[in-house]
Design a protein around this nucleic acid. Structure first.
Lengths: 248, 248
DNA sequence: CGCTTCCTTGAGTAAATTCAAGACTTGTGG
DNA sequence: CCACAAGTCTTGAATTTACTCAAGGAAGCG
């Protein structure tokens, strides 16, 4: 028996002090515009493992991820599941003009969202071009990412998929590898979740990670933290490059 | 020896008579706005098999597909290729705020585009909310389609992929199956192109199509035209539904 | 400490790929 | 009009990759 998941209403941080101020949907807002957003926003936190929104739900809120990691997933009737998005801090949930969601959103770690009531947000967007432009940018970035992921899902081997996934984590966590190594990266997903992201089984994910470890490409600090020992070998393994991203 | 591919500049059709008037980027424009677009547009045709734009090219034009079929593809260094989009009439090429392309665009059949010089188009968009809203809708529709395709690429079997692909052709060509059958559909791609779309090999595509034919689900009129004999069986085979889309 | 969840590894299997050969189409030139 | 070539498609056989099934080990939580 587990207690009912608790969605907590938090005191919102002032936009000016927000950790994602410079990257989120509000990135290019003036302080006047921030004031408008401030009026309709509320912070909510979701415990790890709990659903944030279900497919088909009416979209009451749109939101930015402030802290934590969430996933977007789609499933077939028989349970086969494919992750279609990984939401890290500053990523946005919900789209103007859509009233329902076409996938499930789940908190993977404890997640704090900066929520805006959808209707109020949509009204605000109309006379706030900085926000609508940013939304367009966000949508196009997601589209580019989705198309890269299609190449991965359709054509890459298990090893290439894993290497590409790890490389994406490095880039999205802004950990630059300056000396051929990258230290102390968070691996926020379980093996099964990684498998659902990459179109593999959890056993295959485990085997490939073990192999990269055995080949001294990566090293695990614990189950959810790792380091890249040989960044060039990792790049080679992604399949994107034949030269491992060397400066020629 | 083949003659150099000829990109032809055609006399543009008046927007009012345009076959894609009601669905393209200009769908919700007023006649004044259409007049503005009319001033900066030009029709260009590309022969079947020729490239329209290359990855990395500077984006000089944005365009709507008026007639014909084009593909968006990405490739790994070793030649493995994944199609990431199929452009049918009324679909749009290019994005506001992006100056380069991240994939190749290729004419699969003879293609006629309604081209707008990118800079002029971007200026126009700023004071034409009907166009910018439509662009946003288009981007979000593409994102939804990309995510459905991710589920297909990551989790569906070869048979399910083929069935889903055929079902998509039925929907996008607006051929409603009223009586459990659908007649005379265009199959605009070669087996290899279908394979690149579905993340399969051309042999697997051929085998699966043969199997659907042998099971009396589909029938070929010629290599590029087919009919659906048993629409429910096709829906069953997509894996999306357990009931084949029956009204319960 | 004991339970549950998550992870690893091995053995056998299944699905799709690769390699290969031949058939059908379509267009071209004699 | 026919023959031939190039491109496309089909089918078979062997192989490979990743999957399934299974067991045991490690980690995290009450």
């Amino acid at each position: 028996m587990t207690a009912a998941p608790k969605i907590t209403l938090e005191t919102s941080v002032k936009c000016g002090e927000c950790p994602i101020r410079h990257r989120a949907v509000c990135a290019s807002c003036t302080s006047d515009e921030l004031g408008e957003l401030e009026k309709i926003k509320s912070y909510r936190t979701f415990p790890a493992g709990t659903p944030i929104m279900w497919r088909g739900d009416e979209l009451v809120y749109v939101a930015s991820v402030v802290r934590g990691v969430a996933t977007l997933t789609k499933a077939l009737e028989d349970g086969r599941t494919q992750m279609v998005g990984l939401l890290l801090p500053s990523d946005f949930i919900g789209r103007p003009g859509r009233t329902t969601l076409d996938f499930d959103v789940t908190a993977v770690s404890d997640v704090t969202l900066c929520c805006f009531e959808r209707r109020a947000f949509e009204e605000l967007v109309v006379h706030t071009p900085h926000v609508s432009q940013r939304l367009m940018e966000i949508a196009l970035d997601e589209l580019d990412a989705a198309r890269d992921w299609m190449l991965l899902l359709g054509r890459k081997t298990a090893r290439e998929k894993i290497a590409t996934f790890l490389d994406m984590l490095i880039r999205r966590q802004n950990m630059q590898g300056l000396d051929g190594a990258v230290l102390d990266l968070a691996l926020p997903l379980t093996r099964e979740e990684i498998a659902n992201y990459l179109g593999l089984t959890l056993e295959t994910v485990s085997r490939q990670l073990s192999q990269l470890k055995a080949q001294n490409v990566i090293r695990f600090l614990d189950r959810k933290r790792f380091e890249v020992v040989d960044l060039q070998a990792l790049h080679m393994a992604t399949g994107d490059d034949s030269d491992g991203g060397m400066i020629s």
